[in-house]
């Protein structure tokens, strides 16, 4: 059936089964490939997007549920890559393979909305659902502090 989604400020329609996860609607139907598939069970959160401003795993969010609020993906975080987190990620040279980083940045962006000046404990709590197979955690933490203008404990 046809679903109307608001993605990155634009209305988009997808004619798909109602149990199709948002992840695959974004990737295969709307051709937004920034949101990544890693595990399909919410373990790695490479597919983190914002639904109504909250970070959710798109792999566990059926399209039927995703209609309830606006969706923001990594492609819509900023118009031109100038979100403070994107700038900090570049400055700290965070990514190795980079595959998880869209999810990491989306999780961090949701954190900074709630806690503009996060402590290390805030960062641990918000970021631990997101896996990085390359182990860039030291730099992710530093980049979040950088973007927030805070320093590590």
């Amino acid at each position: 059936m046809a679903f109307t989604l608001t993605v990155n400020g634009r209305q988009m329609t997808a004619d798909v089964p109602d149990d199709m996860p948002l992840l695959w609607v974004l990737r295969d139907v709307l051709k937004l490939h920034g949101t990544k598939y890693g595990c399909g069970i919410g373990q790695c959160r490479a597919c983190t997007v914002h639904l109504g401003g909250e970070p959710v795993p798109a792999c566990l969010t059926p399209v039927s549920e995703a209609t309830r609020a606006p969706i923001t993906t990594i492609e819509g975080l900023s118009a031109d890559g100038t979100h403070p987190l994107q700038a900090a990620w570049r400055e700290m040279d965070v990514p190795q393979c980079g595959y998880c980083q869209a999810g990491q940045i989306m999780a961090a962006a949701a954190l900074l909305k709630k806690h503009p000046k996060p402590t290390d404990a805030d960062i641990d709590a918000a970021m631990s659902p997101n896996l990085c197979r390359c182990g860039t955690y030291v730099r992710i933490r530093a980049a979040i502090h950088k973007a927030a203008g805070t320093s590590a404990a």
């Binding site: 490939h33 492609e75 190795q96 980079g98």
Partner: peptide, 17 residues
Amino acid sequence: MGVDVPDIVTGKPIYSI
């Protein structure tokens, strides 16, 4: 900085998948 980092942080489709 990694040459692909600007593309990575903006979600460009650069991977095999």
